[in-house]
Every structure is written in C-alpha cells, then in structure tokens.
Simulated assay, not measured.
Amino acid sequence: MISLAKGQKIDLTKTNPGLTKIMVGLGWDTNKYDGGNEFDLDAVAFLVNSEGKATGDGAFIFYNNKQDPSGSIVLSGDNRTGEGEGDDETVKINLAGVPAEVQKIAICINIHEADTRNQNFGQVSNAFARVVNEDNGEEILRYDLGEDYSIETGLVVAEIYRHNGEWKFSAVGSGFQGGLAALAATYGLNAG
C-alpha cells in the first residue's frame, strides 16, 4: 500500500495490471462541536470531459443521484455522522465501464448545509481517501489530507483520470468555500 501526500500522482492501472473495479473510500472525524446541529459530510463525484467540464446532468453524483447514467460510478449510502472506524462513504468505479467522454472523475467531500450550520473543515480531522481493488479487497493507496483547513466547506480530495490509455490518481486536497454550488461551478455545473 502506498501513502500519498498532497500534489502527488500515481498510476493505478499501469502498476496494477488487470485492475478494473476500484472502491474509493472516504473517511473523517468531526471534532467536538457545540453548535447543536448534526455534522453531515457528503461524498460527491463529478464526471469531467477533456475541457474540464461536467459531461451532463448525470455527471454530478451525490446523495440524490447515486450513480451515473452508465452505472459505472456508484456512490454508497449517506453516512450522516462520520462515526466509527473505516470508510464513512464510498464511491465504486468500474474503470472499464466509464464512458469514453469522461476523462476525469473528481472525488469531493462537502459539508451539508455548512453555512447555515456554521461549520467548516477546521472542525474536521483525520480525513482520508483510499483506493481499494474491489476484486481482492487489497488497499492500493491511501491519502491522508492532514489538518491544514480552516474556513473551507468543500474539498476536492482527489481526481482519477485517464492518461495515455491508463488510469491515474492525483491527490488534490484543495479546499473551497461556498459549498456544493461552488464545487459544481468549478466543473461547469449549476447546482443552484
């Protein structure tokens, strides 16, 4: 298993021949928080074309649209607390079935209703992403995001993208303010 730092890129399929189905597990813990509201983080994925724009309405995968039209990218259920060990939410990707126009899959975490609940990633710790070979359960890589966030309400955790016919993983770790709408706008979608 390889541990990545922010900004690193790694081959997925080239170094793991025969890899076709992966699970991206996302996890986090919330610090003690006295605002009286639930702290609900959501995994979100955007399917992006070569111009960096979403490939259509079905290209926004979130709790109300849990899979893309091809069925090759599927989001797990909505974990509303983040409690317990291991993955809090997962995105399963059948790399062989991803439509050709999808050049990149951006994996994000968003804090649900962050503005109205006065929450941000400064109150989140131990956030990570890991990639598992779904066929044998082997963990291929892990990316711990660290604690260098404060006012952000959304994170682009990683991008899984095509490069010369292979799939690669990029540890992005960039934070956003403005919630889901800001994340969606980055990929050319209007989530309002």
Score class of each variant (00 low, 15 high):
residue 1 M to S: 09
residue 2 I to S: 04
residue 4 L to Q: 01
residue 4 L to P: 03
residue 11 D to C: 11
residue 14 K to W: 06
residue 14 K to G: 07
residue 14 K to P: 10
residue 22 I to E: 01
residue 25 G to N: 08
residue 27 G to A: 11
residue 27 G to Q: 09
residue 35 G to M: 11
residue 41 L to T: 12
residue 42 D to E: 03
residue 44 V to I: 10
residue 47 L to T: 07
residue 48 V to M: 04
residue 49 N to G: 13
residue 52 G to V: 13
residue 53 K to C: 12
residue 54 A to H: 04
residue 55 T to S: 02
residue 55 T to E: 08
residue 61 I to P: 04
residue 62 F to V: 15
residue 62 F to T: 12
residue 64 N to Q: 04
residue 67 Q to N: 13
residue 68 D to K: 14
residue 70 S to E: 12
residue 74 V to T: 15
residue 74 V to Y: 15
residue 77 G to C: 08
residue 77 G to M: 14
residue 78 D to N: 02
residue 81 T to W: 02
residue 82 G to W: 02
residue 83 E to N: 09
residue 84 G to F: 00
residue 86 G to T: 05
residue 88 D to Y: 00
residue 90 T to R: 15
residue 94 N to S: 11
residue 94 N to L: 09
residue 98 V to T: 14
residue 100 A to G: 00
residue 101 E to C: 12
residue 107 I to A: 13
residue 112 H to M: 06
residue 112 H to S: 07
residue 114 A to Y: 01
residue 114 A to K: 06
residue 114 A to E: 00
residue 114 A to T: 01
residue 115 D to P: 06
residue 117 R to A: 07
residue 119 Q to K: 10
residue 121 F to C: 00
residue 122 G to H: 05
residue 123 Q to L: 07
residue 123 Q to M: 01
residue 125 S to H: 06
residue 125 S to D: 08
residue 126 N to A: 11
residue 127 A to N: 08
residue 131 V to A: 15
residue 136 N to K: 03
residue 144 D to I: 03
residue 148 D to G: 08
residue 148 D to P: 02
residue 151 I to M: 08
residue 152 E to M: 10
residue 153 T to W: 06
residue 155 L to D: 01
residue 156 V to M: 13
residue 158 A to E: 02
residue 158 A to T: 12
residue 159 E to G: 03
residue 160 I to Y: 01
residue 164 N to P: 05
residue 167 W to S: 05
residue 175 G to K: 00
residue 178 G to A: 10
residue 179 G to W: 06
residue 180 L to T: 04
residue 183 L to G: 11
residue 185 A to E: 09
residue 186 T to R: 06
residue 188 G to E: 10
